[in-house]
Structure formats: C-alpha cells, structure tokens
C-alpha cells in the first residue's frame, strides 16, 4: 500500500472520530475528554472478538460499537445530569479508568505492551465508504430538528428547556452517537494498524479532536472535516522537523483561536445550493439552473 493511501486511510479514520466530537462539542457544547477511550473500547473489543473468539469481522465491528454504546449509556446516564465542568472531569476520569483496565488486564489485552497480530481487514475502500456514511449521518443529524434542538441547548440550556426541549435526553443521545462513531473509528483503526496499545487512547487524543473541531470552526461541518484532514496530515507534511512539528501545530492553533476565533470556516458550509445561490439576481431561471448544474459538476470534479 502506498504511503499516500496509508495517510489517507488514517485521515479518514481521524475524520470519523472528529465527527463524533463535532456533534458533541460543536453542536451541543459538551466537552468530553474521554472520547478516545470509546475509540479504544471499539478497537480492543473488535480486535479481541476477531483474534481470540474468531468472530467474523463485520459482526465484531457491530458488537464493538454496541458494547461502546452500552458503556456510553451507563456513563452518560450518570454524568450528564451534573454540570458541564463536572462532565468534562467525569469523562476524563472514565478515559483514564478505561486505560487503566486495558493496561492491567494483561491476560486479555497484552497490557501496556499492546495487542498485536490483528489481521489487516480495513481496506482503503472500506475506509472511504465508512467515511462517506459517517459524514452523511452527521450532516443529516445536524440539519434535522434534533440537531437544531442541540444547537439551542448549546446556546442557552435554560431557554431551550423552557421551549420544551428535553436537554438531558438530547445530550444522552448525542453522547451515544459520539461514542458510537468513536468506537467505529477505533475498530477501523485496529484492523488497519494491526496493533493496538492503551497509550493511543489517552485524554490528550480527545483534546486533539476538540482542537481539530475548533480549528475548522465548530459551527461548520466542512470546517471540522477540513480541520481533521489538515491537522492529521500536517504532522506528516512537517516530518522534516519532527521535534518542532507539534510546536508548530500548537502555534497555528493558537494563532487561529486568537485571530479568527470562529475557526477557519466560521459558519460556512460547502454546499451546492450555496454555490448556485451566489449568481447575480435577475439571471434567467433556466439559465441559472444550467449554470448551477454546471457548477455542481465542477465542484464534483474538484472533489
């Protein structure tokens, strides 16, 4: 597999994880420092099922996601009622607890040495399909009534509740969706790298996902995807100065937050309707439609 394909698959997996954080942090305003732990659960459970119990790969992925959803339900139900800062702390504690269990259950997971020998079953095509499905799902959630309700909760929880939105119920669903996406990304990554270790799933990983969302703009799905792509590919591009690249990465993020706090993209979304709406008023309807179609074709070709 060529170097670019490998980077591409890693980027696709990162985007799926970041999409979970986008819904959670960007849309609903919840800060979870334990998202990477769900990724770890997805990776470990699916890898264990396939390697130790010889479960078929697709079933193992489904079971791993279901397992993460179960754990997420328990964590979300107990911690989402408490205040935001506590939620960040509780998810942080959850993440570290999961890592501790992974490190300690040496018999099953190989402990800190990691769990090797996972077959490479995530093909580039599978990763691409998974990415498209995840983007489609998150986009639809964002534009549904549910998504707008979540935005209302982020903006003002009290006002949203007064308008009849059940904030706890929405937060729990969003948290589960995020957990599921992260676990799915984890399963894909385990079967791509063929190796998992607890150190991959610490709280800093969760923080990096949040940073990626804010880099692109938390109100823009395009921005979140762009942020994930750029910031996960950037360390690869900056490989010439490996020691400095994290520092440069941090500096770029600081500059963006200071000078463009809404993120690179603000509220802007890549949309075909938006492209066609930009033509000057007074253009003929039929001509406009042809032009829109042409522009759509152009955009597709660019993508």
């Amino acid at each position: 597999m060529s170097y670019f394909v490998t980077v591409g698959v890693f980027t696709a997996i990162t985007i799926i994880g970041v999409l979970g954080t986008f819904i959670l942090t960007g849309l609903t305003g919840l800060f979870s420092l334990g998202q990477a732990a769900f990724m770890g659960l997805g990776a470990y459970v699916s890898a264990l099922l396939v390697v130790t119990f010889h479960v078929p790969f697709p079933l193992a992925v489904v079971l791993a996601v279901l397992f993460a959803l179960g754990v997420g339900y328990f964590i979300g139900y107990t911690t989402l009622k408490i205040r935001q800062d506590f939620f960040a702390l509780a998810t942080f504690g959850f993440g570290e607890a999961v890592r501790a269990v992974m490190n300690e259950s040496v018999k099953w997971t190989g402990g800190a040495m990691g769990f090797a020998g996972v077959p490479q079953l995530t093909t580039p095509w599978l990763a691409a399909a998974a990415l498209i499905a995840a983007v489609w799902l998150v986009r639809n959630v964002r534009y549904s009534k549910f998504g707008r309700d979540c935005l209302a909760i982020r903006t003002d929880e009290l006002a949203a509740e007064v308008m009849g939105i059940n904030a706890f119920d929405h937060k729990l669903k969003v948290f589960l969706l995020g957990a599921g996406l992260s676990a799915f990304a984890g399963a894909l990554s385990a079967f791509f790298t063929t190796y998992v270790e607890p150190a991959m799933f610490g709280w800093t990983q969760s923080a990096v996902w949040i940073i990626m969302v804010f880099f692109g703009g938390r109100d823009s799905l395009t921005g979140a995807i762009f942020g994930a792509t750029t910031l996960s590919a950037l360390p690869e591009v900056l490989r010439f100065a490996s020691q400095w690249r994290v520092a440069i990465y941090c500096l770029i993020i600081l500059l963006i937050i200071n000078f463009r706090p809404a993120g690179l993209f603000g509220r802007w979304e890549l949309s075909f309707k938006g492209l066609s709406r930009r033509r000057p008023p007074g253009a003929g309807a039929g001509k406009g439609r042809r032009k829109a179609v042409a522009e759509k074709g152009g955009a597709d070709a660019d993508a």
Partner: peptide
C-alpha cells in the same frame, strides 16, 4: 470554550518546548 481550547493547546506547546 476558546479559553479552554487555548489552555489545552498551551499545555501541549509548553510540553513540546521541554521535549525540544
């Protein structure tokens, strides 16, 4: 939230300064 994100980034940056 911007303060929060900045503070996490600063933690990573200062850590990286030590690594460098």
């Amino acid at each position: 939230v911007y303060f929060f994100v900045t503070s996490v980034t600063m933690l990573m940056l200062l850590e990286q300064v030590l690594v460098i």
